Amino acid sequence: MNSNSAPIGIFDSGYGGLTVFREIEKLLPQYDYLYLGDNARAPYGPRSFETIYQYTWQAVQWFFRKGCPLVILACNTASAKALRNIQQLDLPKTDDPSRRVLGVIRPTTEVLGQYTQSGKVGVLGTAGTIRSESYPTELKKYWPEVQVYQQACPLWVPLIEGGEHHAPGADYFVKKYLGQLFAQDQGIDALLLGCTHYPLMLDKLREHIPAGVCLVVQGEIVAKSLVDYLARHPGMESRLSKGGEHRFCTTDNAADFERQAGFFLGREIEASTVQL
Rank of each mutant, 00 (worst) to 15 (best):
G219D: 04
L276N: 10
L202S: 08
Y149F: 12
S48H: 09
I24F: 01
D90M: 15
A127C: 10
Y35G: 03
Y198S: 05
D252Q: 01
L102F: 03
S272T: 14
C68V: 05
G219V: 07
E23V: 10
S238A: 15
I188Q: 06
K204Y: 05
A78S: 05
L36A: 02
T77A: 06
D90I: 15
D95P: 08
L91F: 01
T126Q: 00
V121P: 01
G179C: 03
K175E: 09
G103K: 09
I52W: 07
A223F: 08
Y31W: 03
D95F: 13
A254I: 00
Y198G: 02
L102Y: 02
R41E: 02
V111C: 09
V216K: 01
R239S: 11
K26C: 08
A127W: 07
G113Q: 11
R232H: 15
T126L: 04
S98V: 06
L139D: 06
R99K: 07
A82P: 01
M236W: 08
Q147M: 12
S79H: 01
S118D: 00
A59P: 01
V104P: 01
E23M: 04
Y198Q: 03
H208A: 05
Q184N: 07
A82R: 01
L73C: 04
C68W: 04
V60N: 03
Q58A: 12
A78W: 06
G128M: 09
F248H: 10
F264P: 01
K140M: 13
V217E: 15
I188C: 05
I130L: 01
A167M: 09
T273H: 05
E133T: 14
D95V: 12
P158M: 05
A183P: 00
T94S: 07
L193W: 04
A82V: 05
L34K: 08
V157K: 00
L28T: 10
Y229V: 13
I209T: 00
F264M: 05
S132L: 09
Y198K: 03
L83W: 08
R239C: 07
V60M: 02
I269K: 00
L191K: 02
F49N: 14
K204Q: 07
T56I: 06
Q151E: 14
F173L: 12
